[in-house]
Simulated assay, not measured.
Amino acid sequence: MMIIRTLATGSTGNCYMIDDGQTRLLIELGVQFKKIQRALNYETSKVAAALISHSHKDHCKGVQGALDASVDVYMSETTEREIGIQHNRIRRYENKKQFRVGTFTILPFDVQHDVENHGFLIQSDNGIKLLFATDTYYVKYRFTGLTHLMIECNYSRKILDENVESGRIPEFLANRIIGSHFSLENLLEFLKANDLSRVQEIHLLHLSDTNSNEEEFKRAVQATTGKLVYVP
C-alpha cells in the first residue's frame, strides 16, 4: 500500500505526501505551512518528517512553519546554509547515504539543477520502492525494482521552441529551463533506460503552465511504459 497525495505542484509551490499505512512523509514544503496543515485536515502530528530537495522557495517556503510545528525537516548541509534557517528540528542528510524515518529507508542522490539538488529513493518495509526526482534536466542513475515514480515532466522541447519563436518566452529563460528542468523527451529516455517491470503508478510533477500539455504528456508516458499515469 502507498498513498500519494499532491498538495501543491508547479512553479508557485510544491508539496507532496506519501503514506505506507504506518509512516507519513512530506516531500517538499514549497507553500506556506498553514496551507499544508489545511490540506492535511490539521493532522500534522501524523507527519513523521519532511524531506527538502533544494533551496528554491517553491520547494522550501514552508520550512520555518513546519519546524515551528515540531516537524523534523531533512535537508543537505548546503541547502540548510542556502535557506539560512537554524533550528533543532533540522536533520541533515548526505548524498548517497541512507537514513531511516519510521518504516521508510531513504537514499538521497544528486541530480542536475542550477543549485545543489537531490532526488530520493524511498523504500518501505512493506516492499514499496518509490523514486522522487524533480527540478533536474537529467538523472544519471539507473534503478531496479521500482513500484512508484514521482517525477518531473516540466516541458516539451517542441512547445518551448514554439513559445520562443512566438515571443511568449524569451530565449534566456528558455535556456535556463533547458538547463534545469526535465523535458518530456528526456523523461521518456530515462523511463526506457530503467527497470519498470514492477511499477504500479507514475506521477508526473511540476508541469509548466506555459510549456506543457497535460494530456499529451500523459498519453506519451502511458504509450512508452504501459503504466498508470497521473498528472496532479
Results as ranks from 00 to 15, higher is better:
Met1Gln: 09
Met1Phe: 02
Met1Thr: 09
Met1Trp: 00
Met2Thr: 03
Ile4Arg: 05
Gly10Lys: 01
Gly13Arg: 02
Met17Glu: 14
Asp20Arg: 00
Gly21Gln: 08
Thr23Trp: 07
Ile27Thr: 04
Glu28Cys: 10
Leu29Pro: 01
Phe33Leu: 06
Lys35Gln: 14
Tyr42Met: 05
Lys46Asn: 09
Ala48Val: 08
Ala49Tyr: 00
Ala50Pro: 06
Ile52Tyr: 07
Cys60Ala: 15
Cys60Glu: 01
Gly62Asn: 01
Val63Asp: 02
Val63Asn: 04
Gln64Trp: 14
Gly65Phe: 13
Leu67Asp: 00
Ser70Gln: 15
Ser70Ala: 13
Glu77Ile: 12
Thr79Lys: 01
Ile83Gln: 00
Gly84Met: 14
Asn88Asp: 15
Ile90Arg: 02
Asn95Asp: 11
Phe99Val: 07
Gly102Ser: 06
Gly102Val: 10
Phe104Val: 00
Leu107Phe: 11
Phe109Arg: 02
Phe109Ala: 01
Asp110Phe: 05
Asp110Leu: 04
Asp114Arg: 12
Asp114Gly: 05
Val115Arg: 08
Glu116Arg: 07
Asn117Lys: 02
Phe120Lys: 00
Ile122Arg: 00
Gln123Leu: 04
Ser124Gly: 14
Asp125Ile: 07
Gly127Met: 09
Thr134Gly: 11
Lys140Trp: 14
Tyr141Thr: 03
Phe143Trp: 13
Leu146Ile: 08
Met150Leu: 14
Glu162Phe: 04
Glu162Ser: 10
Glu165Phe: 12
Ile169Gln: 04
Ile169Thr: 15
Phe172Met: 08
Ser180His: 07
Phe182Cys: 09
Phe182Pro: 01
Ser183His: 05
Glu189Gln: 12
Phe190Thr: 10
Lys192His: 11
Leu196Asp: 08
Ser197Gly: 12
Arg198His: 11
Val199Asn: 02
Gln200Val: 08
Ile202Lys: 05
His203Gly: 00
Leu204Pro: 01
Leu204Phe: 08
Asp209Tyr: 13
Asp209Gln: 14
Glu215Lys: 15
Lys218His: 04
Thr224Asn: 12
Thr224Arg: 12
Gly226Asp: 05
Gly226Phe: 08
Val229Ser: 06
Val231Ala: 13
Pro232Trp: 11
Pro232Val: 06
